[in-house]
Computed example of a mutant assay.
Amino acid sequence: MAAPTRIVIVGGGIAGITVATGLGRRLGRSGAAQVTLVDRALSHVWKPMLHTFAAGTALPDRQKLSLLAQAKANHFRFRLGSLQAVDRAARQLTLAPFDAEGDGAALAPTQLGYDVLILALGSRANDFGTPGVAEHCATIDDLSDAEALHRRLRGQVLAALRSEASLRIAIVGGGATGVEFAAELKHAVDVIAGYGTGALREKLRLTLIESGPRLLAAFPDRVSRAAAATLADLAVDVRTGALVTGADAAGFTLKDGGRIEADIKVWAAGVRAPAVLARIEGLDRSRTGQLVVGDTLQATRDPAIFALGDCAACPQPGA
Rank of each mutant, 00 (worst) to 15 (best):
A304P: 00
D295Q: 12
E180L: 04
I280L: 07
L143K: 09
S66F: 10
E147G: 01
R201Q: 14
A229E: 15
E180S: 05
P317V: 08
A106I: 12
A278H: 06
T21F: 02
F219R: 11
G178N: 05
D263S: 08
A170D: 12
A106H: 03
A159I: 00
H187D: 14
R77G: 10
D99R: 01
I7P: 05
L65P: 00
A268D: 09
G241K: 02
S166F: 01
G81V: 06
A193H: 10
A193M: 03
L234D: 12
G270A: 11
A165R: 15
E202K: 11
A32K: 13
A20S: 13
A188H: 07
A55S: 15
D145V: 02
R91S: 11
D190C: 01
G175L: 05
S43E: 14
A15T: 14
D256K: 09
A319Q: 13
L68V: 13
I305L: 04
R151S: 14
T288E: 12
E147P: 00
E202S: 13
R279C: 00
G198H: 03
C137K: 13
A2W: 05
A299M: 08
G122A: 03
R205E: 15
P213L: 06
D115Q: 10
R301V: 03
G122C: 09
K186A: 07
M1K: 11
T207E: 05
A313F: 13
T5N: 09
R79Y: 00
G246C: 03
T207I: 06
S286Y: 09
T130W: 08
Q84N: 02
D87L: 01
G12K: 11
A58N: 10
R239G: 10
R285H: 12
I260V: 15
G257W: 13
E147D: 12
G309Y: 01
L37V: 05
G294C: 11
A120D: 04
T110S: 12
I209L: 14
G113N: 08
L161C: 07
G175H: 07
T18S: 14
H44Y: 13
G294W: 11
L149C: 06
I280R: 01
L80I: 07
A262T: 12
